[in-house]
Amino acid sequence: MTRWRGAVMHELSLCRSLLRQILEVAEQHRVLAVTVVRLQVGPLSGVEPELLKTAFPLAAAGTLAESAKLNLTATCIEVYCGSCKKRSRAASNQLSCTSCGSCSTQLVSGDELILESVELTLDELSAIKCP
């Protein structure tokens, strides 16, 4: 198992899940290479984007995605206030309502870790096939 600073970061195990999902898609098409992988990463997802970028090439080595570019989009934290019924932006350690100060808010977005899309280079046979 690949180690990083003595311990395997959880970003690496997430990259392995990511690779499984990407390669499943690649198998369904005749793919020469996966060129771009787009992810949405929320500040409350528990994932450090820089570590994800470090881990991805380790997980992708020797696969169709080994040269893929990892594009990360940071999402915003938004909460819905159960008291004043408003949505507002929030910070990761300040999730109370910015309008009324209530702590009874629900997270609307900010904890997502989503494989948004992939770009693939298709081989000739696949390229002339209808989807």
Partner: peptide, 13 residues
């Protein structure tokens, strides 16, 4: 052979 495709997935990791 270099045709590309973009596939939307929206899958939770």
């Amino acid at each position: 052979p270099q045709e590309t495709a973009s596939i939307s997935l929206l899958q939770n990791l």
